[in-house]
Structure formats: structure tokens, C-alpha cells
Design a protein around this nucleic acid. Structure first.
Lengths: 178, 178
DNA sequence: GTTTGCGTTCGAGCGCGCTCAAAGCCATAG
DNA sequence: CTATGGCTTTGAGCGCGCTCGAACGCAAAC
């Protein structure tokens, strides 16, 4: 049931741009049907990052990757799952050093789970803050876009009333020539 | 009426952390009661950035600032308003070069407003995309946090049902040791 | 009259996260 | 047989957005 809620929320959030959202939800939930092993190119493709970046992550100590007979990287399912997680976290803005810290905890063993949880919670809060910031910025930009129409065209009538709702505002100087 | 809606949305979004949101809404709307002129320290304080950064923006051509008898910067109301706008855009992730482009349009005169509008709309869409991304990441992190409780303590019972909802998942390998 | 503090300019430096160049190995295709 | 393509390693380079250091100017405080 909670998974349905999860899906519902994700779907609600995405709304528009159909195909991309489907793929995103897949990535969100399909930790299960990960291939046995992958080449660097395949994984880079899956994660939508460059092979360069994958090697960089490995150098940074975020994951250990085995080699085949030719010295080529072979990403097993566990490595893939970890990298899915890592890229997801990167995408949400977690800095490299935090990921390094987190991974060091993972590698330190089961007893570090409380601390890992703390890190996740902290990051969750960071994401929430960022979303709030962005939502506020979005509102500001949308407002600006709306009022901008007034200076270029005649397609503003609902907003004249609004402007009077702002304190001390002379009609057209609210958003000056910028 | 639309302004009320604006406010409502902003307030809804913020919800928690009271004082910060109040200040934020102020910044969102209080373009009006900007001081006649400000020193660099005052403005830095207002914008919550460093004087260094203000000088940097000036060097980057984003704003021209007059000097007083001592060669000290004097930010007039227009400069302040522009910098409020600029920092807001920076905060929402608009890159410097886009701002430089935008400002160049502003300085080019009234006839560039359509193009400016395009930039704003593009940026609005970027913000929306980013919010969607972050919301998705947030969902993933929240999900992970919830399931994590299961591996450290006994406080997971609602989620066992969920796990079966994921395809092919052996009970505890959904989110392996990370 | 010197010290303190805030400002100035110019150029360099930095932290982050990649991104790439060079030189080389191996396998398959033509 | 050689050419092409994909991988390897190492170390360097880069784009971004600041951030800082150095050397100096001016003004009010002690």
C-alpha cells in the first residue's frame, strides 16, 4: 500500500513529460532486475553518465570493480546497485565527500546503520529545503513573467488588481526595466 | 486575488520553519521599500552574500555601481533592485553567463523584452524540472529511510507488505548493505 | 599621531566535479 | 596483416562561482 502511495506521489509530481517520468519511476524502483554484470559502457548508458565519471567514482573510493581477463571493468549486480544509489544521490545534490563518508560507513559494517540513517535524514532535509527554495524562486519567476507581459503587450488585465494589493507600489515601477 | 494565491502558494510550500519563510516572502515582494542607497556591507548583509561576491558581480558586468568621494561603492535603489533580482536568479540556479546575457538585453533597451521573457520562461521550466527531479529523489530517499529502519530495528511492519509488491525481491535484499 | 576599521584594485587561488589527453593493450572485422 | 574500436592507466586540465591575499586609501577613535 505504501508503495502505491509512493508511485502516486511520483506520478503526481511528474505530471507532464510522459516518457521521461516513466523511465524515472523505473529507476526509482527497479533495483531488482539488474543484470548479472555489465560493462562500463552499458552501465554508463544505464546511469546516463560517462564512463569517465564511472572511473572517477571508482578512483574516489565509492565502489570497487572487478576486472575480466582483459583488465576491463566488470560491474556485478551489487556494484550496479550501489552506483544506481550513488548517482541518484549525486543528482539530488549530495556532495562527493558525503558520499565517500557514507560509503566508508557501509564498508565499515552493519553497526554503522544508525549513522548512515542520520546522513540520509540530513540529506532528506537538505533536499526538502532546496525544494522549498526552488518553489519560492519559481513563484517569483512566474510572477515576473506574468507582470512582464504587461510591459510588452496588452494581455494583462487580471493583474492590475493584484498590483494594488502590493504595498506602496507605484503601478509600473514594481518590476523596473529588467 | 492572484497575489493572494501567490502568497498562499508560497506559504503552503514553506509550511514549517517560520521566521525564514516570512523573511523570504518579504524578499519576494518587498522590492518597493528599498533604501535610497546602501553601502556594500549593508547590501551584502541584505542579500546574504559577501562583499567579495558583490564586487565580483560588478566585475562580471551585471551591474554598474557609482562611487562616493572616497571611491566607495554606493548602491542606489535601482542597483539594489537589480541585485535582488540577480541573487534570486542565482539562488534558483541560473548560471552567470545567462544572467550576463539577460542583463545585456536589459541594457540594450525596451525592445528586448520579448527575448528576456523567453529567457525567463526557459528558466522557469528549468526550475520546474529541477523541482521534479528533487521531488523524485526525495521520494527515493524517504523510501530508503523508511526501509532502513527494518535493517537496524524491529520498527518496520507496514513495509513487509510493500516489499512483496516489488518484483523478484528476496525479503532483505531490496536495499542491500548500503 | 597612530591605530582600527572599512573600503578600494588587481590578480591569483581554490573547491568541486568532472573531463580529457596520451600512450598502450586486446579483439574482432575486413 | 592491419585497422578499427573499445577498453586500460595516469595525470593534467577545465569551467564554474566564488574567495582570498596584498598593498593601499581614508576617516573616525583613542
Amino acid at each position: 500500500m505504501a508503495t502505491d502511495e509512493l508511485m502516486t506521489r511520483a506520478l503526481e509530481t511528474l505530471g507532464d513529460d510522459g516518457p521521461l517520468s516513466v523511465e524515472a519511476i523505473h529507476r526509482l524502483t527497479d533495483l531488482a532486475d539488474v543484470p548479472e554484470s555489465m560493462t562500463i559502457a552499458e552501465l554508463a548508458d544505464l546511469l546516463d553518465i560517462s564512463p569517465h565519471t564511472l572511473r572517477y567514482y571508482e578512483r574516489a573510493g565509492l565502489v570497487e570493480v572487478a576486472r575480466d581477463g582483459n583488465g576491463h571493468r566488470v560491474y556485478d549486480a551489487q556494484a550496479v546497485r550501489r552506483l544506481v544509489f550513488l548517482t541518484r544521490m549525486r543528482l539530488s545534490g549530495m556532495p562527493m565527500r558525503d558520499l565517500q563518508h557514507y560509503i566508508s560507513l557501509v564498508d565499515a559494517g552493519q553497526h554503522t546503520t544508525p549513522e548512515r540513517l542520520d546522513l540520509l535524514i540530513e540529506h532528506r532535509d537538505t533536499i526538502r529545503r532546496r525544494i522549498r527554495e526552488l518553489t519560492l524562486s519559481l513563484t517569483a519567476v512566474e510572477y515576473k513573467i506574468t507582470t512582464y507581459g504587461g510591459s510588452t503587450g496588452p494581455d494583462v488585465q487580471t493583474l492590475d488588481a493584484d498590483r494594488t494589493a502590493l504595498p506602496y507600489e507605484p503601478p509600473r515601477r514594481t518590476l523596473p526595466a529588467d
